Simulated scan of single mutants.
Amino acid sequence: MRNIALDTVDATPRPVLAIGTDYRYGAQLPPHTHRRAQFLYGMTGLMEVETADGAWVVPPHAGVWIPAGARHAVRMVGVATRSLYIEPAAAPRPAAVCEVLTVSPLLHQLLLSAAELPALYDQAGREGALIGLILHELAAAPVLPVFAPLPPDPRLGALCREILRAPDIRIRPDDIARRLAMSPRSFTRFFRSQTGLSFGAWRRQACLMAALSRLAAGQAVTTVALDLGYDSPAAFSTMVRRLLGRPPSALAGNV
């Protein structure tokens, strides 16, 4: 199925529905929910996803797992998607929060094929077997570390959103502690209790997500590295390679 609204087929008695959608560059989907769980795969381009739990950037060759009922907003940067909408009882992943998953070459081909299926596909034949294999592949897909959790505390959450809009690896935890009228030690404990990460690790994730967006939009590696406050492109490249297993040059221009 291509370029159709989910609500026109949501009641179809099938555990999984596959829909392909083409979005204009920069399209924004306002906060919304689905009754079904969703696996949102961008065949091209890059997606930025935000929920109450945090923010994700979804690079090419990856997709985002969205549990049933999870409220989310998405910004599309040159994206054609292949989405799966999965009944909660058939969900292959137990996570209660969104996850960015690596899409293997096999899963990529399966998702392309699934988008050609009708809503009432034959569950007992090849079409049902195709859907079953997709669910197995989703269950086994590794998680990519491109997530910055948003703290529930309103003041800290507002500061974190501010950093996400303009991340810089040089932002010091002492500066954030001062803005919250906290001692550095109290801030360190508070930040970890709110996000599960140290401030340094969270700041690195924020920079990584911004880097992916800018590289996908065609900005030069050196420009991105210096804008994010890294001392050199080499230091920036080391960070990206350590977290994603690929150099920044392999991510540039993938829109």
Results as ranks from 00 to 15, higher is better:
residue 139 A to D: 04
residue 136 H to I: 14
residue 220 A to M: 06
residue 15 P to Q: 05
residue 129 A to V: 07
residue 188 T to C: 02
residue 111 L to R: 01
residue 210 A to T: 07
residue 131 I to F: 03
residue 103 V to P: 03
residue 111 L to E: 04
residue 109 Q to Y: 05
residue 152 P to Y: 05
residue 149 P to S: 08
residue 67 P to L: 10
residue 153 D to Q: 14
residue 176 I to K: 04
residue 102 T to Q: 14
residue 26 G to L: 08
residue 149 P to N: 10
residue 28 Q to T: 11
residue 240 V to N: 08
residue 198 S to A: 14
residue 17 L to K: 05
residue 15 P to G: 03
residue 219 Q to A: 12
residue 227 D to E: 15
residue 163 I to N: 05
residue 247 P to Q: 08
residue 39 F to L: 13
residue 180 L to N: 06
residue 102 T to E: 15
residue 97 V to I: 09
residue 5 A to R: 14
residue 110 L to I: 06
residue 42 G to F: 01
residue 245 G to K: 04
residue 187 F to D: 05
residue 147 F to I: 01
residue 175 D to G: 06
residue 56 W to G: 06
residue 173 P to D: 11
residue 181 A to V: 09
residue 218 G to D: 08
residue 237 S to E: 14
residue 175 D to F: 15
residue 103 V to W: 03
residue 19 I to Y: 09
residue 255 V to G: 12
residue 159 L to Y: 11
residue 164 L to P: 09
residue 70 A to K: 12
residue 149 P to W: 06
residue 150 L to S: 11
residue 72 H to C: 08
residue 113 S to Y: 04
residue 24 R to L: 13
residue 84 L to T: 00
residue 145 P to G: 06
residue 1 M to G: 10
residue 202 W to Y: 09
residue 36 R to S: 10
residue 226 L to T: 11
residue 123 Q to N: 00
residue 205 Q to K: 10
residue 213 S to M: 12
residue 100 V to Q: 04
residue 156 L to Y: 05
residue 111 L to Q: 02
residue 15 P to C: 06
residue 223 T to C: 03
residue 8 T to N: 05
residue 234 A to Q: 13
residue 201 A to C: 02
residue 209 M to G: 06
residue 28 Q to Y: 12
residue 41 Y to R: 04
residue 117 L to P: 02
residue 88 P to E: 11
residue 117 L to N: 03
residue 167 P to T: 10
residue 71 R to A: 15
residue 149 P to K: 09
residue 50 E to T: 15
residue 49 V to A: 07
residue 141 A to I: 09
residue 171 I to Q: 10
residue 229 G to I: 11
residue 46 L to P: 00
